[in-house]
Amino acid sequence: MFRTVAAAGAAALLATFAGTVSASALTVGFSQIGSESGWRAAETTVTQQQAKDRGVDLKFADAQQKQENQIKAVRGFIAQGVDAILIAPVVATGWDAVLKEAQEADIPVILLDRQIDAPDDLYLTAVTSDQVHEGKVAGDWLVGAVGDQECKVMELQGTTGSSPAINRKKGFEEAIAGHPNITIARSQTGDFTRTKGKEVMESFIKAENGGKDICAVYAHNDDMAVGAIQAMKEAGLKPGSDIKVVSIDAVPDIFLAMENGEANATVELTPNMAGPAFDALEAYLKDGTVPPKWIQTESKLYTASDDPKAVYESKKDLGY
């Protein structure tokens, strides 16, 4: 298996080398983790779109979830003498050596959607969302939506121990902290999947008086929310009106549910990490403007009033 992956990595490298190098335009290498989720695929699509819109020659390398492939790809970019490198790091550690090589070659590196454990002078900036903030936005929406009503919330956590699960839980709890009328009555992991989200919600409904006691569902991602919505419908409940549904990610399918009145709100984890990255890069290359070490992307809240149908149409072809 290892050999297959290595071969694929090599093929990706060859593809990078084979790309045409335009003399005038900016050439940027992008080492992507892989395509393990819809969001990741959308990030790749958006990055390519952004590059095209700005006339950037983007060299794309898919690391198939292996850091060694990413390091190889980055070395390949350095050898080609690209103008900048974007890395969506698969893990947090082990980057120092290759980042030093880039620094010595005078190539700025920008990290996308994840931070790493390395001295921050080794990279130009990191463009990521703030997962705690995402949870807080979701929580703030719920606080505003229920007012003074008593509200029992069912929380569908992400994979136990994963950082989005920990942070999105933390942010949500911060938001509802001053509101004793809102309580998280049950919290279980749905492993970020529809199937588990549905299964967990089915159990919650049974445990909470057939769902009559449930005021809201907070899911750490939209997929689990979609599963939970199905569970509620099959139990004869009306998600969106009987039970409020708020989740995070803003994948296209949640907007369909929102359009049907079955979901209430979602917080966007934008796939557009490249936009702010290119902005910072262009400014830096033009007049040496050094960006802050962390560029936080916007965690935008979408609700039914944001024309979910239109948002769906705009997102559905991004590869989610």
Partner: peptide, 14 residues
Amino acid sequence: IVTADIKGADANNA
């Protein structure tokens, strides 16, 4: 069954 249940195919997790 798994696919019909969530009205979708999730290649990563199914």
